[in-house]
Design a protein around this nucleic acid. Structure first.
Length: 450
DNA sequence: CGCATACGCGCC
DNA sequence: AAACGGCGCGTTTGCG
């Protein structure tokens, strides 16, 4: 499948400047010369160009949705929301627009006189009404529990159930055809829109119910393969951290090992609380998290948070050095890049405004990790698609979705047993890091089951 | 009336 | 008080 010149131009322009900070050439020959000059031609030719027709094919394929499941869900939610609405008006002694944060904050803090001390202000000065705030004041008024429930259900109803129903009905073939965006994320990740199928709920009980609506075609089975801790593996490899590399090579529980190091206890003595804290630390390091954010998400005070972070960097010294090196390089050049040369310009990195500079520093830390993980899954998609074509399996195995570290397929039932380990193998060998890549596999009769 | 913004929230 | 990276999207609200 040929790629239009127009599409090539857009891809090239995006690689040269993912956030359109600069003026980039408009004609392909000049663009390709520029790509070579900036070391971007290889990912252009070996990743982005081959990926484009694969994404087109996935969009055309779509994913089957059982509308009846959604319709049933819709009715249940509508009824429940109706009850909650009445209960909230009753407890607030007056009707108001629950979906308006402005009106809600007035009801809670002015009319019902709930104590607003310690409640964060939004940038407009309004008192926050987000979930975190509501949880804080849950014990102070009985309306709050109903509000939390309402928020959760309304989100599911308005963002997922209703629009998804519309999309299936509009498509005529019983399938939803999302659009994959190849040039919208500054890190090189894919995005999905109309509808976004990369943010379908999974955590809540309602998430499972929604995912039950995503089903394979008759005679096929859903197959999901996801990279286990890919970003942490990329971090270990990119920062060349001896201790973390060793842990992944040995197949150890990385969060438990982190806890053992940070809390200076034997691995077998690590408590579940310590492991959870270590897990937050590990993720925080990928995002360039500071002590305040860590304290907040872990429910500890700032001093403890500082101590733990210090302890973390004392143990994973190579990661600390990599952070410093990465930020220094970004200040020097004005951009960061991953191992494959993919770049992101950071205009804020040298500004005097600490807020913007810190924001750029966190992006600088995150980009080489997130973007290499994105490259790896893109390469895996290309290799899987090549294999399917070579083995004439394109009818029996359909790639449906790519969700950052996960690939979803529908596979003809009689091919499942053979195909599953093959795709797993392709994904695990798609890229060579200093640690092994691990892929978890699951299959089932709906997206909920995988 | 359409559009941009603020707020809030789902996912990785 | 906030400052944890990357997205897309629904509703409300203010503006032209």
């Amino acid at each position: 499948m040929a790629i239009s010149e127009e599409k090539k131009i857009i891809l090239a322009q995006w690689l040269l400047d993912p956030e359109k900070q600069q003026v980039v050439p408009k004609d392909l020959p000049t663009l390709e010369a520029k790509l070579k000059e900036f070391g971007l031609f290889v990912i252009y030719e070996t990743i982005e160009l081959p990926l484009a027709p694969i994404l087109e094919e996935m969009q055309k394929t779509g994913i089957k949705v059982d509308v009846k499941v959604l319709e049933k869900l819709s009715k249940t939610l509508a009824a429940e929301l109706n009850n909650l609405e009445k209960e909230i008006y009753d407890k607030a002694s007056a009707p108001f627009n629950i979906n308006s944060p402005k009106q809600l904050s007035e009801v809670l803090f002015d009319r019902l006189k709930i104590d607003a001390t310690g409640i964060p202000k939004r940038k407009t000065g309004a008192r926050s009404t987000d979930v975190e705030t509501l949880l804080k004041i849950k014990d102070r008024h009985s309306v709050v529990a109903a509000l939390l429930k309402y928020r959760e259900l309304f989100k599911v109803f308005s963002t997922y159930v209703t629009p998804l129903k519309e999309f299936v009905l509009a498509s005529k073939d019983g399938r939803i055809h999302t659009e994959f965006l190849q040039t919208s994320a500054a890190t090189g990740r894919l995005a999905s829109q109309n509808p976004n199928l990369q943010n379908i709920p999974i955590m809540s009980e309602w998430g499972k119910k929604i995912r039950e609506a995503f089903v394979p075609e008759a005679g096929y089975t859903m197959l999901a393969l996801d990279y286990s801790q890919i970003e942490l593996r990329v971090l270990a490899s990119v920062a060349n951290d001896t201790k973390m590399i060793e842990a992944f090579k040995e197949g150890l529980d990385i969060h438990k090992l982190t806890a053992a190091n940070v809390f200076d206890v034997p691995v077998e003595k690590v408590t579940s609380e310590q492991r959870q804290l270590a897990k937050t630390l590990n993720f925080g390091v990928i995002y360039g998290m500071g002590a305040d954010a860590f304290a907040k998400t872990s429910g500890i005070n700032r001093e403890e948070a500082r101590t733990f972070i210090e302890e973390y960097f004392a143990n994973f010294a190579d990661i600390k050095r990599w952070h410093e090196k990465t930020i220094a390089a970004a200040r020097e050049t004005g951009y960061v890049e991953n191992l494959n040369g993919r770049k992101r310009w950071l205009p804020g990195i040298n500004t005097a405004n600490r807020r913007f500079a810190s924001e750029a520093e966190r992006a600088a830390i995150n980009m080489p990790i997130q973007s290499l993980a994105a490259d790896i899954i893109k390469l895996a998609m290309i290799k899987v698609a090549d294999w399917l074509k070579k083995d004439k399996l394109t009818r029996q195995v359909r790639m449906l979705l790519s969700i950052h570290d996960e690939l979803l397929f529908e596979v003809a039932n009689d091919k499942l047993k053979a195909v599953q380990p093959k795709i797993q193998e392709i994904m695990e060998s798609a890229y060579t890091l200093k640690v092994p890549l691990k892929v978890d596999v699951a299959s089932g009769k709906s997206w909920a089951e995988v």
